[in-house]
Design a protein around this nucleic acid. Structure first.
Lengths: 242, 242
DNA sequence: CGCAGGTTTGAGAGGAGTCAAGGGTTGTGG
DNA sequence: CCACAACCCTTGACTCCTCTCAAACCTGCG
């Protein structure tokens, strides 16, 4: 099985890739695996020979304190590659977990490494992906550190909406396969309080059956203090050609 | 003025660089600027033609919510390059601010770009640096999201100690030029509460005059639930040669 | 049908924020 | 050399956001 167009589109969105490079990427082959919700894709302190590309479902990066408290540090939606950084630092310090049954394309790390070696621009594109992830992490720190519970939840929903659906009107819906507990783990809020906070947001958004329905996009963004700038990459760049 | 050995040592710590590459890095030239504490090094939404290397002092990456609450997202100590990622995404979405008078080496971005183009391993080393930063950010999310105030502060002090001093006995001291307000901005705690929490940590650590004195390193790590694994890079790697 | 996992709601406790004011320290300028 | 301003640290009192504990309800699935 080969790469998704989603992934290629994402890379092309920030890095100018020529036909040869796109061809090389399309030449990548991997095997599809299905991971059940709640199961680990990558465990902490292990080294895997594969890179994951999310095809379907939702993957969470989950960290833990020594007394067992869980923190979700990132969500990866279809088209994302959650463990690019393992190409550089193979020892995982954080686990990857499916929040719901997910389809994953496992690509041999060696194949990706060869590509990066042969086509610097592909390395550049992947590097830019990791930098984009870091920006999102930075925004999460701001979100968790400075906003109140209600705003945190709203902000998180806005971010995922922004990443998952291209055309956003005032009202729309999308797949959001997370429990309220996971929402809490991602925002540093207890499950109980997530539930109450969602109640106060019911005018703008409602969650049910693994979906989010947005009723008032403007109000939701307002509630979360959401500004999508940090998700933008500007026009496609190319270090190697400048 | 040329690069510091600190920076080269950091790169060499995770990436195997040969003589030519080290020589090329040593050939980099920049100008030293001094930034006063509290002043911006890089402003939000601007594009700078330089990359910064911290020589002396302390730099904070600071984010803000739309209602003006400040969150410090990272600290950069001497030997760090806070804005490597600007090589890939030049538009800064976050500001860099000196917490105290700092000496910075400003290197023309074009020079660094040329180096990355000519020596892929240098790009690889810088990429690994950005990945390391991302790991730290991930740990901050865990810290702010799941730990109580006392542990957050202890954890942060442990991290900086770990990054700044090589030989750590049971007792030692190091330069920590941050105010309690900044400590709060980095941990998502109000200034007043930082002060109280520091009181409860007085057996293990005391701050004064821009320095931290550790009296009981084991107890401080315990209080912060600190485990340095996330700061380690393992043995030096080399993508290009594997 | 019954269980497991997720959602909801209530009540009480507590960690941390806010407001306010006093005390130190540092640096600048008269 | 002293005075003053600015900034930081410290402490108290009160408030409130959020957590914890607990129980009930719902829903999908075996």
């Amino acid at each position: 099985m080969q790469l998704t167009n989603q992934f290629l589109a994402k890379l092309s969105g920030h890095t100018r890739l020529n036909a040869a490079e796109l061809g090389a990427l399309l030449g990548l082959r991997g095997t599809i695996v299905t991971t059940r919700g709640g199961c680990d894709l990558v465990r902490r302190d292990t080294e895997s020979d594969y890179c994951c590309l999310v095809l379907e479902g939702l993957i969470a990066r989950v960290d833990q304190t020594d007394d067992g408290k869980r923190q979700i540090g990132a969500f990866y939606v279809p088209g994302d590659m959650p463990d690019i950084q393992a190409l550089l630092l193979p020892q995982a310090v954080t686990a990857l977990q499916a929040t719901i049954d997910s389809r994953i394309l496992r690509i041999p790390r060696s194949a990706l490494r060869d590509l990066v070696r042969s086509y610097p621009a592909i390395g550049e594109a992947l590097w830019r992906e990791t930098v984009g992830d870091a920006r999102i992490a930075s925004e999460w720190i701001l979100n968790i550190g400075q906003r109140q519970a209600r705003a945190r939840v709203a902000h998180l929903i806005c971010e995922i909406a922004h990443r998952v659906v291209e055309a956003r009107g005032q009202q729309f819906g999308f797949s959001l396969p997370v429990t309220q507990t996971q929402l809490g783990e991602a925002t540093g809020i207890s499950t109980v309080h997530v539930n109450r906070v969602l109640g106060t947001l019911a005018n703008s958004v409602r969650l049910s059956k693994n979906r989010a329905e947005i009723f008032d996009w403007a109000e939701l963004q307002e509630a979360g203090g959401f500004d999508a700038t940090y998700l933008a990459c500007g026009t496609p760049q190319r270090l190697a050609l400048e």
